[in-house]
Amino acid sequence: MSDHQSSSKMPLSPTGLGLRLVPSGIGLHKLSALLTLVLLIVAFSFTSPAFLTMNNGLTVLLQTSVIGLLAIGMTLVIITGGIDLSVGSVLALSGVVAGLTIKAGLPILPAMALGIAAGALCGFLNGLVITKMRITPFVATLGMMMIARGVALQLTGAAPISRLGDAFGTLGNGSFFRIVEMQANGFPKVVFPGIPYPAVLLIVMALAGGFLLQRRQIGRHIFSVGSNEEAARLSGVNVDRTKIWAYTASGALAGLAGMVLMSRLVTVQPNEGVMYELDAIAASVIGGASLMGGVGGISGSMIGAFIIGVLRNGLNMAGTSAFIQQIIIGIVVIGAVYIDQIRNRN
């Protein structure tokens, strides 16, 4: 993030003059994504009067938090040059693990921690299969996608787990600074709906992810592995460890996203999260991550996640059918990857 911005502020060198346009292209990509987001918001404000309201804004924030959390992990993995197709299924399995352990009598917090740990374990296994068995990330995580979904369905008999208690719903439905006034007629009036916990969680995790990627050694190594794996290895980077780390983080974040989603529903649904991985990949790519590896950033991916969130929400508000929505988002994903291709050709 900061790297790309600072590079464009460097004084121009005589030889670098003509090449200067390309590095700023990464920033340009992010800028164009941001512009797209603003345009979408403006456009939807006209199609539906209820779109540009405080309440709907917070709804978008809430809806995007799950995709956003997945996109953070996905971005780490994509920068290493890999892909994680398993996050949607891992999200469901994590929820199932949390739900079953709550049913078995465990308090909410340790149960949720176990759910996240289950997600991390799935990610860790992805990493092991990819690095030790030398199976391509696409195939390895496709396998995990089916395995995790199968385990989630098998454990629950494909039935949702409900009656988990009100406390289970706090993470997904609670909010900070919620102001409710009692009216004279005895009905409560919501003055300010509050900042939902999931949105705060997303911001915290995005900042943490960005910090890791830009300021810590592991982040530097993630970029180096995606940029040139052999060079990273010869330079003394532990390539396998770096990849396993990225996939484990992706799994753990999928677990966390699972907690948020299931908590919001106050029910564990083993069928939840199907195709969420595609939204997460789309968010990362729209935000400037390259599927070839070595390029990407958390801030861009967050913009990408909000583009998808706003698109979904705005199309809903405008009364567009779910089928048309799929078509539009499909086109957006292809468009984003096409932009990525053009950038690589340059």
Binding site: D3, S7, R220, H221, F223, S224, G226, S227, N228, A231, A232, S235, G236, V237, G294, V295
Partner: peptide, 13 residues
């Protein structure tokens, strides 16, 4: 590593 700058490459690892 092509995407990293000179210093990042020099100190890589």
């Amino acid at each position: 590593a092509n995407h990293l700058d000179a210093a990042q490459n020099l100190f890589l690892g």
